[in-house]
Design a protein around this nucleic acid. Sequence first.
DNA 1: TGCAAGCGGGACGTTATTGGTCCAATGTAA
DNA 2: TTACATTGGACCAATAACGTCCCGCTTGCA
Lengths: 343, 343
Amino acid sequence: MQSLIDIQQQLLPDLLVVMKKRYLILRQVMLSDMIGRRTLAASLNLTERVLRAETDFLKGQGLLLIDAAGMRISDAGRRLLENMEPLYKTMFGLSDLEERIRERFGLKGVSIVPGDSDTSPYTKRELGRAGCAALRKVMGKDDVVAVTGGSTLANLAGQMMTQAPLKSNWFVPARGGLGESLDYQANTIASTLAKRTGAQYRLLHVPDHLSDEAYMSLMQEPNVREIVEVIRSARIVVHGIGDAMVMARRRRVDESVIQAMEAEKALAEAFGYYFDRNGEVVHKMSTAGLRLEDIVETEVVIAIAGGRSKGEAIAAVMRFGHDDMLVTDEAAALEIAAIMDRE
Amino acid sequence: MQSLIDIQQQLLPDLLVVMKKRYLILRQVMLSDMIGRRTLAASLNLTERVLRAETDFLKGQGLLLIDAAGMRISDAGRRLLENMEPLYKTMFGLSDLEERIRERFGLKGVSIVPGDSDTSPYTKRELGRAGCAALRKVMGKDDVVAVTGGSTLANLAGQMMTQAPLKSNWFVPARGGLGESLDYQANTIASTLAKRTGAQYRLLHVPDHLSDEAYMSLMQEPNVREIVEVIRSARIVVHGIGDAMVMARRRRVDESVIQAMEAEKALAEAFGYYFDRNGEVVHKMSTAGLRLEDIVETEVVIAIAGGRSKGEAIAAVMRFGHDDMLVTDEAAALEIAAIMDRE
DNA sequence: TGCAAGCGGGACGTTATTGGTCCAATGTAA
DNA sequence: TTACATTGGACCAATAACGTCCCGCTTGCA
């Protein structure tokens, strides 16, 4: 059955949204015995007109009875609700989870794909696809999109598709180069995204990890300075989330710094910064890319990360509180929910 | 899984239509390796613009690759098609069958619900619902709808719903009263339908089975005459289909006539007439209701009947050739298809 | 190498659909 | 009877869908 839903999701992505809306209307009506349109619209957060279109439809389907006194559920509607009961969890379980997490961290949107990226490459791919969808949704015209590196972002970039070319948009790396494999460099990802969407891109040919002096002198270079300004003006940022220690080592951060971070219980890494479990930044360093103050200013910040092992790190970064959207997977989301419950 | 589809059918009735359209596009593209929009539109009987909207969508979903050379399927699309293969039959098998039957008998539309009305009351209910949908689709303003009697029609009437009241429409019985139970009388059904849809109705208080003399004298009555004229002017006729012998006995047709019909191999009964397997009428009698010549003139004739045992009778009436729509169930449809294959 | 057929995609005007808002008619309960 | 809440109709604005035409590009054939 899951496979059927997966297929339908690909062929009719907003199927579940519509189904859920209608299900909830029906359910609310049943719980209310008899209820009026306005009351119902208010309790479901729908405008009166939209609700009316839906109730007219449900009436036509014979699931709802409407008369001058109000609406109540029909026998067929009651039967349908009963039959849907067992399906509800599998069909909408994730969107409930999405809503809980969205609410808790004050996000604009949360998107959860089924599965666990740690164990299933398929889930990882889905995660990328969901990331694409989230990004597509917020991109407009003339937007600058800054992206970080990492395997998840690389996965996203490799799957990105658009209906029409986005000529007027720019993709830029959020940070400079790291010691990682080429495929996972922010530069590579920005360029892949631009190529796949028909957008433009700029690269930042500067190491991410800089001494203050090197930073100052590099920023004197007009061409470096120029692209850095573009990066810092990004309206949209898409970033991954990593484990603090793993990332620090991969970035060859000084052993002394690593130990300091360990002492401060650094847990998560995102766009080059390290966070403890409360979302406090525990280590800063000068960077030619996006700085914390830029992130705070950015209009849309999208985090994308999945896998049970990353749940804690994701929760930490969410506590930092400057993300607007989270794209994750079921395993990580359950982990996050568990952390929320423990609070 | 079937239950999921059933539920979705109620909450999103045209889900399958859209899914099938997209599936067929994808499939056609795969079979064609590389194909252009216009060619594809022609081979799928879609207008160019509609197809374009769909292919843009499929491209956005990453299922289709489009470049200046044409369209081809992506890996994800190919995977999707493979995954759908087993689902196709359960999801669309009936609509293929619908199309075959529609084509063979030159109908405007065929609607098949899953199951067998002979054995499952649930299927019988579904049949009624499908009949409602078919009827709703063809009803406009100021229409006169003539309905016959029978349990299937009664079932339909009991489930009929409309979004808005159809004040300007009239429901009338197609034929006079029979010896049957009150619930199954055409009069009862016309009145139920009118009440449930907010339409008007007229009754025909005349026995269906009349001697020529009685017929002539009854037709002198102004009020009988008036309603009979309304009936005969019906734009829409909805009728059931029965087994000839069963119906004849139920109607207490003279034993001599029954034997004559048996000799002529009467097989099916519909709107008071008896048909042999070739759709030829084998017995006529004067009636105050709809006559054959009225049926021939009627703009929309809808047949509704299901159950494996009725397959043969349905096929016979379809051969008569004046129906426009058929609403039936899977068991009967398969029986009809088997008869078609034997031809 | 040149040509023509077929391709995607842009553009535009028209039509159909959807959503917001207001109000009249109606039924219900106090 | 009155006051309230209900549905359903009406209307307008915004938007999406659609039909149609054309342009520039690629590609395969001559």
